[in-house]
């Protein structure tokens, strides 16, 4: 299995009136063919910023200040990449959170899909485009594609709209699909449909997927691997089941403990709130809220500790537990 999308020590900075602040710090990611990587984090943890950097949709004052994002080994994060426009859309598709707003309300579904196909596959004839649209909508579970193509977005239900917007993202057969909270706004049954769809997409078309969510249990169910983000850093990665059943980082543990279960009297929250964005910091960002933090946690630089071939955590305690490690920064995730 080859690596499709990789991020190497990516740091994303936002220029503010008071100087630059780091939104995402030293992020490493690897997604292989047919793999779904779940990027987990609470609001403001930088997961959406990271996803947007991959598709090149960062705000004007936000930029990738160091590190590189590569698609099949080719850098796509530097501003010199002038064919970025062709990369997005044809190689990377994105699905957004709000299904109702992912489509132009004034344009028929078919026209919107055609526009994207024509943009990237100019050699296709009219007949071939129609066939492709029919095929992709059937793949999305529609039994009557012609009717969907002739509909305006408001004539479709929420779940149908989200399936259409997934179709819009995958109609060009991209190598990677970035799904940003794309099931959060749906009710549970439609969510199940969409999750099923995403799963079959990666198994059938071997598409790699970055699934951004705050729902740890959903990620465990759907994703092959999970990366947990906190305050702009990835603090733990590993096999999805492994991370949920045997979390190493105290934050992941606290997050799992906060999931309400039946018969529980009180939901266990995490004390305090996440730190504000900053230009620089020392030590572990979670330390002030960490139940097992020690003095040195706030003082020393916290390195990355591999806990397996493709797993690891950013924590002093994990570092001590792993005897063979030396806090190497290499090739995590």
């Amino acid at each position: 299995m080859s690596t499709v999308l990789s991020a190497r020590s990516v740091t994303i900075e936002a220029a503010t009136g008071a100087g630059p602040v780091k939104l995402v710090h030293d992020v490493n990611l690897d997604i292989r063919e047919g793999e779904i990587l779940g990027l987990i984090g609470e609001s403001g943890s930088g997961k959406t910023t990271a996803a947007r950097a991959i598709v090149g949709l960062l705000e004007r004052n936000v930029r990738v200040s160091s590190g590189e994002i590569a698609l099949r080994g080719k850098t796509i994060s530097s501003p010199e990449v002038d064919d970025f426009r062709n990369v997005r859309g044809s190689e990377i598709g994105m699905v957004f959170q709000s299904a109702s707003m992912s489509l132009n309300p004034l344009m028929k579904v078919g026209k919107q899909l055609k526009e994207v196909v024509r943009r990237h596959q100019r050699h296709l004839s009219r007949q071939q485009i129609t066939e492709r649209l029919d095929q992709v909508l059937r793949q999305m579970g529609f039994t009557d594609p012609a009717r969907v193509l002739a509909s305006f977005p408001h004539q479709l239900s929420g779940g149908m709209r989200q399936r259409v917007s997934i179709a819009l993202a995958v109609v060009t057969n991209p190598a990677v699909v970035i799904a940003d909270e794309c099931t959060s706004a749906l009710d549970v049954t439609t969510q199940a449909e969409v999750v099923q769809l995403l799963r079959s997409l990666t198994t059938d078309s071997r598409t790699a997927m970055l699934f951004v969510t705050h729902d740890l249990m959903l990620a465990q169910d759907l994703c092959s691997r999970i990366a947990v983000m906190y305050a702009g850093q990835i603090i733990e990665t590993g096999d999805a089941r492994e991370v949920v059943s045997n979390p190493r980082h105290p934050y992941t543990r606290a997050l799992l403990a906060a999931i309400p279960t039946w018969g529980e009297e009180e939901i266990q929250g995490i004390e305090g709130s996440p730190p504000r964005v900053a230009a620089d910091w020392q030590g572990c960002r979670f330390a002030p809220r960490c139940p097992v933090a020690r003095d040195e946690c706030t003082r020393t630089r916290i390195g990355w500790t591999p806990t397996g071939t493709r797993s690891g955590a950013r924590c002093l305690i994990v570092e001590e537990e792993e005897p063979e490690s030396s806090g190497s920064m290499l090739d995590h995730v």
């Binding site: 598709v55 949709l57 990369v87 997005r88 859309g89 598709g93 994105m94 994207v116 990237h120 993202a169």
Partner: peptide, 26 residues
């Protein structure tokens, strides 16, 4: 900032086409 506009940018649709073809009707 609507997702459909972000989606069009993401799909590599040129700026003038987004402005005149998609924003103007809206």
């Amino acid at each position: 900032e609507r997702p459909f506009v972000l989606g069009l940018r993401c799909a590599g649709v040129p700026t003038w086409r987004i402005m005149l073809g998609h924003l103007l009707p809206n």
